[in-house]
């Protein structure tokens, strides 16, 4: 079972849901994996005081010039769609941070003067406690292409575990990388027109990818049904409501998860999980 957690808008409580869901599943017979794929700002580890057991660097190939072989013909410059190579005054300049590692330049160089060489783009850290595993990806500073690091985190997915994937906000490329191939996506939103606007964008994206989804309303207020009406209209289940309460925000700001600050939430998250299992089975 692979469950992704997403939200159109930032700051809606995605990590709050992901961490509490993971903690509520600890007594389940199956092991639990939490994948923190918000590689630009990974913060799930703040909530689990676990020692990192190991870390692996993530590399991507970028071209390296053998100046003895280079004929300065300009073929690589012509081929590169990302302006990652420039030919100036008989020097070939490579720009690693705009390179997409497509391999075009080294496949097509007529003199084999360009060869792939690894470049570090991030790291994947693993922490373990009993049957629970936390996998966190971190993008190296100065790098801004996050999908390869997200993919490296997702490569740690264990098919026998319950896998929970927490990703970045938005509905762009990195988010597609985290929801891709998951069995279900939990969308976390808040009951404002801005929250709804971004929820709609996220739902549209999931429809294109054919991934089933349900909604968690965070900072819920009883008098407001803006998200309810949309979900009813689209036939989307509302999986959980977390009320607007300052105690919740305050404890969370201190790095304490919802189920730890108030254990009566644990059965609710367990119920949320069982609901997702039923939705997937359908």
């Amino acid at each position: 079972m692979r469950i992704s957690i997403a939200s159109g808008k930032g700051g809606t409580g995605k990590t709050l849901v992901a961490t509490s869901l993971a903690l509520s599943l600890m007594d389940q017979p199956r092991p639990v994996q939490l994948l923190d794929c918000d590689v630009e700002e990974p913060n799930a580890h703040i909530f689990f005081k676990m020692k990192q057991a190991g870390s692996q660097k993530v590399f991507l190939p970028i071209p390296k010039v053998d100046y003895d072989q280079c004929q300065y013909c300009g073929k690589c410059v012509e081929v590169c769609q990302f302006n990652a190579i420039a030919l100036m005054k008989r020097t070939l300049v490579i720009f690693p941070d705009v390179c997409h590692s497509c391999g075009g330049c080294w496949y097509l160089c007529p003199t084999e003067a360009l060869q792939p060489t690894p470049r570090e783009v991030g790291a994947v850290g693993i922490s373990q406690s009993g049957s629970f595993t936390l996998v966190s990806g971190t993008l190296k500073l100065g790098t801004h292409i996050s999908p390869p690091v997200i993919k490296a985190v997702r490569a740690k997915e264990d098919p026998d575990s319950i896998v929970i994937i927490d990703g970045p906000p938005g509905s762009s490329c990195p988010v597609m990388t985290i929801v891709d191939g998951t069995d279900y996506c939990i969308l976390v939103t808040e009951p404002t027109p801005f929250g709804l606007n971004d929820l709609v964008l996220a739902v549209e994206m999931l429809q294109v990818l054919g991934i089933a989804c349900g909604v968690v309303i965070n900072r819920d207020v009883p008098e407001n049904d803006i998200i309810d009406r949309y979900c009813e209209d689209k036939g989307l289940p509302i999986l959980l409501r977390i009320p607007l309460k300052t105690e919740i925000a305050r404890a969370y700001a201190k790095g304490i998860t919802l189920v730890e600050s108030d254990p009566h939430w644990k059965p609710k998250f367990l119920e949320l999980y069982q609901r997702v299992v039923r939705e997937v089975a359908q």
Partner: peptide, 8 residues
């Protein structure tokens, strides 16, 4: 990387 294309 418009800056690189512009420099070229």
């Amino acid at each position: 990387a418009a800056g690189i294309a512009t420099a070229t």
